[in-house]
Amino acid sequence: MTSSPDNAGAAVLAPPPASPRSDAIAAACALAFALLVVAMSWSMDRLESQGGSLWTAPGLWPGIVGILLGALAAALLVRSWRRAAAIGWDSAEPNDTPLVPTPRFVAAAALFFLYGIGLVGRGLPFWLGTAAFVAFYVYAFYEGPAGRSRSRRLAMALAIGAATALVVTLVFERVFLVRLP
């Protein structure tokens, strides 16, 4: 909770921190998703041939959840519209952060997915994929103290990668008896 310490009980009265544009985008996505959920729930088999009734239909509960989701998303959309009319679409609160990803974030996320989907469980030995991922990440994102040469940075990254791979493999396989991917 990011409320004021002076008055935690009333803190929820504080204005929301995201900009109206960010809220409107989130609300529109949630609304579209809710409509999809309702449509899919409606089209689910009611299993009347097996003696099913309306209240035992598999789509009843997700349908209700979808309707509530849609109603709240619509409320958020209306609220962001009203706020935009008062303060402008991009008037973010002081603690707001933009949704636009930074190059640093894109590179880190790409490495996460490369490791999680491309390196693990694809035939490459687990320790090798892990060592390569950690070493590359450390080399790419950690500059180290000023004046450190590239070769020293690379050596440090490789050492951290190898140590991580060794410790994780040994701990999971030998201590926790988990088969690694």
Binding site: A108, L111, F112, Y115, G116, V120, G121, T130, F133, V134, Y137, V138, F141, Y142, I160, T164, V168, F172, F176, V178, R179, L180, P181
Partner: peptide, 20 residues
Amino acid sequence: PIIVPIIFVLCVVGSYAISS
């Protein structure tokens, strides 16, 4: 940047370890 990839490896291995 040294802690993040190590924790991520644990997230991946840990998720896999639940039911292989």
